[in-house]
Simulated scan of single mutants.
Amino acid sequence: MIARNWTYPRRRPGRPPVQAAIQALVLRLAKENPSWGHRRIQGELVGLGYRVAVSTVWSILTRAGVDPAPRWRLAPGGCTSSARPSIRAGSGWRSRPVT
């Protein structure tokens, strides 16, 4: 007689989960380099020989509660710190009083 149910084990549908070692490496890189975003982390993983998509790195960081794309912080005054010395030196961009 034929069995009513299938007798072989079923596979889970969908893509297999990301390896735990890769998840740990993504979180470690994010912790050690807080200014890196998800794209930079993915590029470093490719350089190390891991094939991981940018969206995978983004989802790992988001699930862990880490901001996947940190914002750049501007120095007080609204300019980057590299432009500040030239602004302070009066590089000519300011208007001078007319006498």
Rank of each mutant, 00 (worst) to 15 (best):
S91A: 12
S55L: 12
R88V: 15
R96N: 12
V46A: 06
Q23F: 02
S35I: 04
P16W: 01
W6D: 09
A3D: 01
A83S: 12
S81D: 14
A53C: 13
S81Q: 13
A24H: 05
H38P: 10
S91E: 09
W72I: 07
L61E: 04
G90K: 08
S35D: 07
V26W: 04
W36I: 11
R96W: 15
S86P: 07
A30L: 04
R96G: 11
A30E: 03
R73I: 00
P97R: 10
G65C: 05
L48D: 06
A30T: 06
G49L: 07
R94A: 09
P34K: 07
R51T: 03
V98Y: 09
S91R: 10
P16E: 03
S86M: 11
P9V: 03
R63K: 09
T56Q: 01
A53N: 14
D67G: 05
W72A: 07
G43L: 01
P85G: 13
A83E: 12
N33M: 12
W6Y: 11
P17I: 13
A20W: 03
N5F: 00
W36E: 15
R71P: 08
R94I: 11
W58R: 15
P9E: 02
Y50E: 10
S59T: 10
W93P: 08
P17A: 11
A75P: 00
A64F: 01
A24P: 02
L29W: 05
K31V: 12
R51L: 02
I60A: 00
R73F: 00
S81N: 13
G90M: 04
L74D: 05
R73D: 00
L74G: 02
I2P: 15
V98N: 08
R12Y: 04
E44W: 03
V46Y: 04
R88W: 15
R39N: 06
N33T: 13
L29A: 07
G49K: 10
W93S: 13
W72L: 08
R40T: 06
L27H: 05
P17D: 11
R39L: 07
G47D: 08
L27M: 09
G14P: 06
P85A: 14
P70A: 00
R94D: 11
H38T: 12
R96K: 15
S91D: 10
R39F: 00
Y8V: 00
V54Y: 10
V66Y: 12
G43P: 02
E44H: 09
G77A: 09
G43Q: 03
L45R: 11
T99P: 06
R40D: 05
K31W: 15
R51W: 06
R84W: 14
Q42T: 14
I60H: 02
I41S: 07
S86V: 14
V57C: 03
L45H: 13
I2S: 13
S86K: 13
S95K: 05
A75S: 07
S95H: 06
